[in-house]
Amino acid sequence: MSQDEGRYWLDRPENVAKLYRGLWIVGVLLVLADLVVHRHAEAGFDGGFGFYGVYGFVACVALVLAAKLLRRAVMRPEDYYDR
């Protein structure tokens, strides 16, 4: 790892931060596009402004938090079934 440290663009934290900020900008632009593009509602209420962005974000955060709870219940040592 040491000899090629810095040779890769992604190895530098400031570049990762740039990507992260860039993704937020893309996200905001996509939500703003809702003002321009008429979105055809599939299920009735999903035509609302930024519905998919909000739902996607909330769903994934909820998914990860629930999975962390699940880990408390179901996680066992790697050799659990071998014992």
């Binding site: 993704l23 893309v26 519905f51 996607g56 990860v64 996680m75 790697e78």
Partner: peptide, 28 residues
């Protein structure tokens, strides 16, 4: 929108240290 914000959720959770780390384990 759905995908980009799912990706943002992942990045945000990861950067905040909330994302569960990979662990050597068996899940029941």
């Amino acid at each position: 929108q759905l995908l980009v914000f799912s990706g943002l959720a992942f990045s945000w959770l990861k950067r905040r240290g909330i994302y569960p780390p990979e662990m050597r384990s068996v899940n029941l």
